[in-house]
Computed example of a mutant assay.
Amino acid sequence: MDALRLLLVLSIISPFAATAAVNGGDKVALELYYETLCPYCSNLIVNYLYKIFESDLISITDLKLIPYGNAKIKSNGTIVCQHGKYECILNTVEACAIDTWPKVKDHFPFIYCVESLVYHDNYTYWETCFEKLGLDATPVMDCYNSDRGTKIELKYAAQTNALEPPHTYVPWVVVDGQPIYDDYRNFKSYICEAYKGTPKPSSCSESSVGRIRKVKIDLLNTLFGQESFKSKISRVLPAILSWLQ
């Protein structure tokens, strides 16, 4: 089943990834801040994010993956990851893959393959993804084994730490500069609503883009933007999200 899904990802990326944006509008920025061994992150990538390539939605989306998440930088400059040393390894490997193959249509299959193994708790076999995808492992491993990988991760650390409002968990999904909080699985709706070009892709007409989502995101941004609310919102956020749904 995993092999079939991987073939599906490859087949759906080919026809759509290079498609130009629909006339009249800039692409919508979709940023995923994540860490490689986070189960919620792998679930998002494996079961949801790949669908962006299934249709013409990718034609209006500028997808960026930032594998750093909740890692911390120690005083000596070394990086400590939330789920341990192996997560730091895979964060750097995936960062090197993005650096080696900058186009999303080129690096996403590899990241999808690795995260599929994470999802099934087989991540120690991540190197098999090179062979499965027919990729040359040399540039990625050269990056990982040199200071290049660390420099890329430090760049991702700076990007993650500069988020406003700051991220409070992962996966942290941002659409055109605005986080969508716990509604991250519905990223398609936010992309369609943010896109200003006409006509919108056909996949957007299939999506229920209700005004309630905008109300939700505006409310959360207002609350998180006020320091006095931060401690309170952490307790009442689940209730607010449930009510708005």
Rank of each mutant, 00 (worst) to 15 (best):
F16K: 09
F16R: 12
A17S: 14
A17G: 02
A18Q: 14
A18N: 14
T19M: 10
T19V: 12
A20H: 13
A20N: 10
A20D: 08
A21T: 09
A21P: 04
A21G: 11
A21V: 06
A21W: 11
V22N: 14
V22K: 14
V22E: 09
N23G: 06
N23K: 10
G24K: 03
G24Q: 08
G24V: 07
G25H: 10
G25E: 08
D26E: 12
D26H: 14
K27L: 05
K27P: 03
K27I: 05
K27H: 10
V28L: 12
V28E: 01
A29W: 04
A29C: 05
A29N: 09
L30C: 04
E31F: 05
E31N: 12
E31H: 13
E31R: 13
Y33L: 07
Y33R: 00
Y33H: 14
Y34W: 11
Y34P: 02
E35C: 10
E35Y: 13
E35G: 09
T36Q: 09
T36E: 06
T36C: 11
T36P: 05
T36W: 06
T36L: 06
L37A: 06
C38N: 15
C38D: 15
C38F: 07
P39C: 09
P39N: 10
P39F: 14
P39T: 12
P39M: 13
P39E: 12
Y40A: 09
Y40L: 03
Y40I: 00
C41P: 10
C41L: 07
C41D: 11
C41Q: 06
C41E: 01
S42Y: 11
S42V: 03
N43H: 15
N43F: 11
L44K: 02
L44I: 14
L44Q: 01
L44C: 05
L44E: 04
L44A: 03
I45D: 00
I45C: 01
I45V: 15
V46G: 01
N47H: 13
N47I: 03
N47Y: 05
Y48K: 05
Y48S: 10
L49D: 00
Y50P: 00
Y50W: 14
Y50D: 00
Y50E: 02
K51N: 09
K51E: 14
I52T: 06
I52S: 02
I52A: 06
F53I: 08
F53W: 08
E54F: 10
E54Y: 11
E54S: 11
S55F: 08
S55L: 05
S55N: 15
D56A: 07
L57T: 01
L57N: 04
I58A: 07
S59V: 13
S59I: 13
S59P: 09
S59A: 15
